[in-house]
Write a protein that binds this DNA or RNA. Structure first.
Lengths: 332, 332
DNA sequence: TTGACAAGTGTAAGCGCTTTCAGTATTATT
DNA sequence: AATAATACTGAAAGCGCTTACACTTGTCAA
């Protein structure tokens, strides 16, 4: 039923070393022998077993992308970029989805310890420096996407700058009474975005003492959810002086905020963050991040490091781009 | 740097067999020895290498989900279900994304031949019977999700029945001048949905001779795209007698159709198909498929078959559910 | 003709585990 | 006390491959 390299070797009248060489296109094999082996292999549908190759060889020809709960557009985009880069090689991509029920760090250490792949891409896995240090110590090639750790390759997004851009946009329009819809403080991206918002106001000489910074009570996904935005917006609408424009730390919250506005029949300019697929359809202005590019470039860098362990670290921070849609078009 | 079972055995003063037994929780090991081994392993951060276990053992403890271009909500939902089922076990889930640039069947045969996993879940991989037969012959445990092949386990959706339900809904409201926005004929789901549409009309005694069945010219993804729906809708709007209601073979096309309606400032009831995430936000009525359930159940079945190779085939067809939202709410 | 070299191939030693089988120490049974 | 049963452990044989090394030819310059 199942053939091994021995079967092929026997049938082709050669040694297993030769069969192996044919499949690895490594050392010279005479065209005649090669053809014979290939012919037999095709006939019986033989392919070298991944596990045996991985154990015996120096490379496994596998890249593993480690992602958290596979659930949103962000990963899909990043994965597409990764996919593109992998397609150019003879590596396989295996995706590992961290299980929500088990402690992350334990799971990751086990995964790396099991040495499944030649290199790992961590997508949106947010760990503390100590935790990354722990992982890094395991000595596997890796690149982080959407997180940063000083001793590793990473591609991240400058959350602060993104928020600066959004805030700047409104200030340039002459608006001064801005508000921020934020998420939980312990979310680093949320914190950074908030920082950018405040800093930009300061730069423009706008006092930040009484700037409304609100979030909802729904804490699912650290507050990055629609209900949270809805609740937050209602808080803003309940204020005696309603803000002129709103910066929001995520599109999904902005979606909730928009429903709240609609209910109260008001229209306040708003800029979200992430450019989720939905935003395009509902005309939500947003900060777009170069997701697929990060995936692609990150994978390229990983391959470099697999080929040459000594190559220099690559650490990039991209700045998001403001995509203007209808939620900022009615201004003026 | 990297430890093997020998290092652990030596440090713990036992044989490698014992270390192996500790990690496999198999035969009895005295608590004392077990603790000693575990302690040492934790200390140095040892985990058995996946490749060595896979080669030596009878099980690899890996399930592989094979998916096409990872790009839409459908897979994400299915994957969530798979994930849930996997979480209940000590298996790992590896996701394999078929590369668009290489011929599918070649890729799949190679993948299975390499024996990466104990079982395979094919999600939305549509092949002909001959092709499935080829794959099946490789003798791996597998279940198809969103496709069917008689000699294999599968979980599919009854596309025809779904379309029947949608069509039925409009007919029940007394409407008779219906239209269908379809996709390319070579897409089996599209063809089945069209079949259901026509059959239902027939059942109600509505002549199907001149029923408008249209599609756009954009063939990307077999016509399952927004532009296609937009173009198709414009064709319908250009008819001398505009239909009373529209059944559409996909939500994404319905989205395009809705923009076309908006442009011409008309509102015609429409039901899409798939219940993509967006539909909820734009209020598109649609046929919802039990995606996550299929993933969950499919994985369970796969485990059964891995445990007991002889167990009976499971072949299920689910019927989608009509989700009514605003695009069908204005009816009478 | 001879030696040097290249090209092609085979032999065999692992890679890091699992698992069978056999052995020893311990406990239970009569 | 003698025997049987049980609990635990180790030795060693693979799992299916890669690859260093050795070997056999054939070719060509000297």
């Amino acid at each position: 039923m199942s053939h091994t390299i021995y079967d092929i070797a026997r049938q082709a009248g050669v040694s297993i070393a030769t069969v192996s060489r044919v499949f690895n296109e490594s050392t010279k094999v005479s065209p005649k022998t090669r053809d014979k082996v290939i012919q037999i292999a095709e006939q019986v549908g033989y392919h070298p077993q991944g596990f045996a190759q991985g154990l015996a060889g120096r490379q496994k020809k596998v890249i593993m992308a480690v992602v958290p709960l596979l659930s949103n557009y962000f990963f899909l985009q990043v994965l597409n970029g990764i996919q593109d880069a992998i397609s150019e090689t003879d590596f396989e991509l295996h995706i590992y989805n961290v299980k929500p029920k088990e402690e992350r760090i334990v799971q990751l250490k086990r995964l790396l310890g099991r040495k499944w792949a030649d290199g790992y891409l961590f997508v949106s896995i947010h760990l503390s420096n100590e935790e990354w240090a722990d992982i890094h110590k395991l000595g596997q090639q890796m690149v982080l996407i959407d997180d940063a750790y000083s001793a590793s390759n990473y591609f991240q997004i400058n959350n602060k700058q993104g928020a600066c851009k959004a805030t700047d946009f409104f200030l340039e329009q002459g608006m001064r009474r801005l508000a921020l819809i934020t998420a939980e403080k312990r979310s680093i991206p949320a914190a950074k975005r908030q920082e950018g918002f405040l800093e930009t106001l300061n730069n423009y000489g706008v006092s930040t003492d009484r700037v409304p910074i609100v979030t909802g009570n729904t804490t699912y996904r650290h507050g990055f959810n629609e209900s949270n935005g809805y609740e937050a917006m209602n808080k803003l609408l309940a204020m005696e002086q309603i803000p002129e424009a709103i910066v929001c730390v995520s599109d999904i919250q902005a979606v909730g905020a928009l429903s709240a506005m609609k209910e109260q029949d008001v229209e306040i300019p708003i800029i979200g963050y992430d450019d989720i697929q939905l935003s395009q359809y509902i005309g939500l202005s947003t900060m777009r991040q170069p997701m697929s590019k990060m995936g692609y470039e990150g994978t390229k860098v990983l391959f470099h490091h697999i080929d040459d362990e000594q190559s220099d670290l690559v650490q990039e921070s991209y700045i998001p781009e403001l995509i203007q849609r209808s939620t900022t078009k009615n201004i003026q």
